[in-house]
Design a binder for these strands. Structure first.
Lengths: 230, 230
DNA sequence: GAAATGCTTCGATTACCATCGAACTATGAA
DNA sequence: TTCATAGTTCGATGGTAATCGAAGCATTTC
């Protein structure tokens, strides 16, 4: 069967515990330095350097050099999507114990996925946008409707500058905790950073958890007209 | 970072060349025996047995015993989706040479992906169904509209028995050659097997290629009202 | 300039695991 | 029963790659 060695190569890249730790850490979307990633994985910087080199040539990471620092981030959203998919597989297989734990609970509720909002709240946002006709599938791809543009602008996001950029505006991304899609793309990222700017939510340092304030939840629900009991 | 060892485990499972070959072979959706898979991977049956055991306990494979044979298939559609995603990553990174080759060409045109139609033609089918309002996104998930039901039935697919089954009727699946979705789920599988029954298309033994006959292409285009030059 | 910090390269060590031959179990055929 | 086929278990072997100490390069700070 042709094409098999390829998936083996990237599979092997992900298949090392140290590298997997680094990739998981980068799922937050933040760019991290080599030494930060080494600490995250619990290995020395030499070893980390070797790993990071392999991940880069393997096309999983993007690198930016800044002074004497080297910042690593996931190569693109597709890499993030594959990693999310892998996590989802695991979650399905685990007996039940994966459901417990307050950390896990919080992750399922709302977490960052490559700089956009994932988890329960992420799905609610996505569903709401679709339900109000702000997003639609135009035959091929997810796109923002005229009324959607209006809504997003009134919410305080500078849609024009997003459209200027090279990145795709709307994209869907599969969730591992739920089995549903949520909003990715530059609009997805803009939403999350705007939530942070409005102080509705805050990232918990060192994890992927996003903690919404009580007031933040309330505003979120009313903005996207979500019934609080669901 | 929590949750990292998990993705490492499945990553490592995929990361072995022999196992990757087996998984690729199973992407056709067909169930294969242990010795067939051993031959596919170019290893002895003993080694294959060991690999298959690991893949099963890792949750990637489903096993059915039938007499003295043991049939292996991918555990579910999600596993298939992750594998497709991995192939897509590779395809994006490869320089350009991955574009050449007649086999590759044929794969891009139409191939089987876990028993449903993928590739260029798969996307055309999906787009056509959406464009005619036969499929729609109902807030959360892809579903068949009333007119869609009518269309599918008139085409000769027994939609009732599909709806009885436990499997999801419509699902979307991301393509690696294009960057678009195509139709998966039990309806997707029903379409492909009906194409085969009508002799529009035939699987090429030992590969994932689906070869459409000239007449088959014509019928396909007219059924889904696709302009032949696009 | 010198010292400090961030990262890379080199070499030696170690641990893991894919591989296969040989022997074994289980199911089916004659 | 006897033979054949499908698959598993066991043990030995070999190769690959992760790991870290030590030394080296590059950049910034003092």
């Amino acid at each position: 069967m042709k094409g098999s060695p390829n998936i083996a190569k990237t599979g092997a890249l992900i298949g090392d515990v140290a590298r997997a730790s680094m990739l998981s850490a980068l799922m937050s979307g933040k760019a991290l330095t080599a030494s930060e990633l080494a600490r995250e994985a619990g290995i020395t910087v030499q070893t980390a350097s070797s790993h990071l080199g392999k991940l880069e040539t393997g096309g999983l990471l993007r690198v930016r050099k800044q002074g004497r620092h080297k910042y690593f981030s996931l190569a693109n959203e597709r890499v993030a999507a594959v990693l999310e998919g892998l996590m989802g597989l695991e979650a399905g297989n685990e007996p039940l114990r994966s459901k417990v734990g307050p950390t896990d609970e919080a992750l399922r509720r709302s977490r960052v996925c490559y700089n956009h909002l994932a988890g329960d709240l992420g799905i609610q946002l996505y569903d709401s946008m679709l339900g109000h006709g702000f997003l639609e599938f135009k035959a091929k791809e997810l796109s923002l409707t005229p009324s959607g543009v209006q809504f997003v602008e009134r919410f305080g996001i500078d849609i024009k500058s997003l459209q200027m950029g090279r990145a795709v505006l709307c994209r869907e991304c599969l969730d591992w905790s739920e089995r549903r899609s949520h909003l990715a793309g530059s609009l997805g990222r803009a939403f999350l950073s705007h939530f942070e700017r409005l102080r509705w939510a805050k990232r918990v340092e060192g994890t992927r958890i996003i903690r919404f304030t009580p007031k933040g939840v309330k505003s979120f629900n009313s903005t996207f007209s979500i019934k609080s009991n669901v």
